[in-house]
C-alpha cells in the first residue's frame, strides 16, 4: 500500500475516481437540496476506503455464505437481467437457461472482469474473492457502473455492450467451495491471475494450484475449457506449470497459439496487479492449459 501524498489525496476528494472514462460531473450525487425524492446516485468507489491486507488464511472458517449445492444457488442476486428471484412474480424472458461460464478466482479489485464484460456481453462471468473489503469494492464498482450505464442516453458513445449485467462478484473461498457454486463441467474458462505466491515452504500448501485442487478445477471445467495462469513470480510460475503439466487432465497450450488472443491480453494487463507489475517493469509469465477429456475407463 503506498502512502499517497497530500496533493493526491486532495485530488481524489474532489470527485469520483474514474476508471473507464472522462466526465465526472454526471456522477456527483443529488445534493440534499431535493429532499422529497432522496435518490442517491451511486459513485465509483475509491480503493482507499476498501483496503485490506493481501493475505487471507484459506484454511480457516470464515463466516462465508455458500450454497449447499449448485442447484440451490440464487443467481438472481448477481445477474438480475438473466435470473428471476424465486419470490418475484414477473418472469423474465431469458429464464434460467444461462449459466456462469467464466470464473476469475481471486479477482481482487475486479480489473479483468470490468475489461472482459463489455467484450463478451453474452457470457456470464463471476469473480471470486475471499477478502471482504475487496469484494465490497468490486460490488460497489459494478453497481455504480451498471447504474451509470442504464442512465446513459441510447446514442451515447460511452454505452457498453451488455451494460455490465453479465458480470458479478461473490465473496467465497474458491479452494474450499468451488464445487458448491458450479456444476460438473459448467465453466469454460477459469482465470488464476497473479495469485498469492506463498513463498515459505510450510505455506506452499495454501497455493491456489496444488495437485489436490487441480482435480476440483478439472471437475468444474468442461473438457476443452481453458485454464489461464499469469504471475510475475517465476518460482510460482514454475510450480503451477509443473503441477498442471503433471496432471493427466490438463494439456499445455503452447504460447504461439494464444498470441493475439484478446482475452489473454486482458488477463495480462487489465488487473491491478498487472498494472503494478508494468509500472515496476517486472516480468510476467503466462501458462495456459486445456482441460482434456476424462479417460475412458
Amino acid at each position: 500500500m503506498s502512502k499517497r501524498t497530500h496533493d493526491q489525496v486532495e485530488e481524489m476528494e474532489a470527485g469520483p475516481s474514474t476508471v473507464t472514462s472522462t466526465s465526472t460531473s454526471s456522477l456527483t450525487p443529488a445534493t440534499n437540496g431535493s429532499n422529497d425524492v432522496n435518490i442517491g446516485l451511486l459513485q465509483l468507489p475509491q480503493k482507499r476506503f476498501y483496503r485490506q491486507r493481501a493475505h487471507a488464511n484459506v484454511f480457516v472458517d470464515h463466516e462465508l455464505d455458500y450454497p449447499k449445492s449448485p442447484s440451490e444457488m440464487d443467481w438472481s442476486y448477481h445477474y438480475p437481467k438473466y435470473f428471476t428471484h424465486p419470490d418475484q412474480t414477473e418472469p423474465s424472458s431469458i429464464q434460467n437457461e444461462k449459466k456462469v461460464e467464466w470464473a476469475d478466482v481471486g479477482c481482487g479489485f475486479g480489473g479483468l472482469l470490468m475489461a472482459l464484460a463489455p467484450m463478451f456481453p453474452d457470457t456470464l462471468m463471476l469473480g471470486m474473492e475471499i477478502r471482504m473489503s475487496v469484494t465490497k469494492y468490486v460490488t460497489d464498482r459494478i453497481a455504480a457502473t451498471r447504474q451509470y450505464q442504464s442512465m446513459l442516453p441510447s446514442n451515447s458513445t460511452e454505452r457498453e455492450n451488455g451494460e455490465y449485467q453479465n458480470v458479478s462478484v461473490i465473496r467465497a473461498n474458491a479452494m474450499k467451495h468451488i464445487g458448491n457454486f458450479f456444476e460438473k463441467g459448467q465453466l469454460s474458462k477459469i482465470f488464476f491471475l497473479f495469485p498469492d505466491p506463498h513463498f515459505k515452504n510450510r505455506k506452499q500448501k495454501a497455493r491456489i494450484i496444488t495437485p489436490g485442487l487441480l482435480a476440483e478445477y478439472a471437475y468444474v471445467l468442461k473438457p476443452g475449457g481453458i485454464l489461464y495462469t499469469v504471475t510475475d513470480v517465476k518460482d510460482l510460475h514454475e510450480w503451477m506449470a509443473l503441477h498442471l503439466n503433471n496432471h493427466p487432465l490438463f494439456i499445455p497450450i503452447p504460447n504461439e497459439e494464444l498470441t493475439g488472443d484478446a482475452i489473454l491480453e486482458a488477463a495480462r494487463t487489465s488487473t491491478e496487479e498487472g498494472k503494478k507489475v508494468e509500472r515496476n517493469k517486472g516480468d510476467k509469465w503466462v501458462a495456459c492449459f486445456r482441460r482434456a477429456e476424462n479417460p475412458e475407463d
Binding site: P29, A30, T31, L42, Q46, F49, Y50, D140
Partner: peptide
C-alpha cells in the same frame, strides 16, 4: 464514510 459516498450519500 467513503463507502457511503460511493453509495450515493452526500
Amino acid at each position: 464514510l467513503g463507502r457511503l459516498k460511493s453509495n450515493g450519500v452526500d
